[in-house]
Design a protein around this nucleic acid. Structure first.
Length: 468
RNA sequence: CGGGAUAUAGUAUAAUGGUUAGAAUCCGUGCUUUGGGAGCAUGUGGUGUGAGUUCGAUUCUCGCUAUCCCGACCA
């Protein structure tokens, strides 16, 4: 995969994930196969969130006055908001923003809902589309103008400690999501100048794409009382005093799917982790004129047996040569393939092929095939994850001087270095190297290293990379 | 948003200021096939959009839209 950009663009079309020919820049269509992947990804998300969050749905339009209330926040988004200015031919008295994110849509309502500490915490999430007028070159799933799958959670708490705990918990939830899809990640605390507009601090997940650039795939923001002050979210505490509520928000998007595709794919196409694969296994009957009925009957029997055990199974009965079917499902990334022809039937065996390793396993038709398949799916999940993590770890190199940054980045690496943590120094480093500081991988550590820019004692381990 | 390039069939492409825009692939139909991308026959389908130059524009010029590369910004 020497040209990731091209590979990614082609695979989305060939595997029928999205059709990016929709005539608006940065907006594309989810095709049935891609939609299935998206659905299973959302199920992973929802299963984890539903444990102690409530799913809700807020309106997409936000009055200009609400959006403008939080000065720092609005400044972060002002250049990328779409506006609704007319209703039919009538110009609206007040422009309506199409949500670029939902804080200003949700928090005025939170203000009405929160009265006392009894009402807290509130933990809600919604899966919606959001819109951002991107000026940069857009890229399906990675940089789009309509984020079709914006899964955002918002919580309200009665103390700063609880807020901090929630942010830690959010990080744990996101780890679980990425782990179940085998997506490797780097967690870092974003630098001051790159945190979510209005947040106290931002914990971010970045993955490394095959071209060495990082992709932000999830963020957890501790909002403190910034938004509570702006939107007047107050509660009466146990002592009968009114205080501002503490909030967090955290979100993931379509990019998770982009990351899964990029993390596991190969020259033959997609390699989908079982959790999000539309089908776990494709049964390919090998049909000749003679014995076709028997082969089909056995295949159907296997299909039903697998289905009964909750395995997502399909049978490819198209009247084309088997080789074509093999290529098709390899391209689409189905984790397993089950081949059965007259010759096998005579020997009472079948072949199961693994998409990730190409390995072919002979099974006896009297064996518990559902059991074998389940076990294979589990090892595929484990192996994909291990392979992707090994690649990520290989991609991170430690540097001691800024001169080493450019060659490392040229070599498609992410660099980590010991840093003093001063904002001014960080900005200077970004300017000098023309590489972004992702953030702090480890904070306030004991080290005798010095900052490669200013020479002051280093306090943190920081990450730098070319970013998407 | 600044600099550069591109736009021909579903896809990737060839050609042309003037009769009917060509081959591939894909797709449809028929027959023979089917253990790693089948063969033959036959058929459908095309110059992004708006204006200008011109007797005549897919071709030349400009705007718009979209796509690709580089930069600033951003998730």
């Amino acid at each position: 995969m020497e040209n990731f950009s091209e590979w990614f663009h082609d695979i989305l079309e060939e595997a029928q994930i999205t059709d990016s020919r929709y005539p608006i820049k940065g907006m594309s269509v989810w095709l049935p196969y891609g939609f299935q992947i998206r659905k299973h990804t959302l199920n992973v998300y929802k299963d984890l969130m539903d444990v102690d969050h409530d799913e809700v749905l807020f309106p997409m339009l936000i009055p200009e006055a609400e959006l403008a209330k939080e000065g720092i926040h609005v400044k972060g988004f002002e250049d990328e908001v779409y506006w609704v200015t007319h209703g039919g031919k009538t110009e609206l008295n007040e422009k309506l923003a199409i949500r670029p994110t939902s804080e200003t849509s949700m928090y005025p309502m939170f203000s009405l809902w929160v009265r006392s500490h009894i009402d807290l915490p509130i933990k809600q999430y919604q899966v919606v589309n959001t819109f951002r007028y991107e000026t940069k070159h857009t890229r399906p799933l990675i940089r789009v103008r309509e984020i079709t799958t914006f899964a955002e959670a918002h919580t309200v708490h009665s103390s700063a400690e609880e807020c901090k705990e929630q942010t830690d918990e959010s990080v744990r939830i996101y780890k679980a999501i990425f782990d179940s899809m085998g997506i490797p990640y780097l967690i870092s605390k974003r630098p001051e100048w790159d945190k979510f507009p209005g947040a106290e601090y931002t914990m971010a997940f970045d993955t490394i794409m095959p071209d060495g650039k990082t992709l932000q795939i999830g963020t957890c923001h501790n909002l403190g009382t910034t938004f509570a002050k702006t939107f007047d979210i107050t509660f009466e505490n146990k002592e009968g005093e009114h205080e501002y509520a503490y909030q967090t928000c955290y979100g993931i998007s379509d990019r998770v799917i982009a990351a899964a595709i990029a993390a596991h794919g190969d020259e033959k196409g997609l390699v989908l982790p079982p959790k999000i694969a539309p089908k776990h296994i494709t049964i390919i009957p090998i049909i000749f004129k003679d014995g076709a009925e028997e082969v089909m009957a056995k295949c159907s029997e296997v299909k039903e047996a697998l289905q009964a055990k909750g395995i997502r199974v399909q049978m490819d009965t198209r009247d084309i040569r088997p080789g074509k079917k093999f290529y098709d499902w390899e391209l689409k990334g189905t984790p397993l393939r089950f081949e059965l022809g007259p010759r096998d039937l005579k020997n009472n065996i079948a072949i199961i092929g693994r998409r990730d390793t190409g390995e072919k396993i002979e099974v006896n038709l009297d064996d518990d095939i559902a059991e074998i398949v389940s076990n294979l799916l589990t090892s595929i999940e484990t192996d994909l994850k291990a392979k992707a993590w090994a690649k990520l770890e290989e991609s991170v190199v430690t540097v001691e001087s800024l001169d080493e940054v450019a060659p490392a980045v040229e070599d498609e690496k992410v660099v980590q270095f010991y840093w003093c943590g001063d904002e001014e120094c960080g900005q200077a480093i970004e300017e000098e190297t023309n590489v972004d500081v992702l953030g702090l991988r480890e904070e306030n550590i004991e080290t005798d290293k010095v900052c490669p820019h200013c020479g002051k004692p280093a306090k943190h381990l920081a990450l730098m990379a070319k970013t998407y």
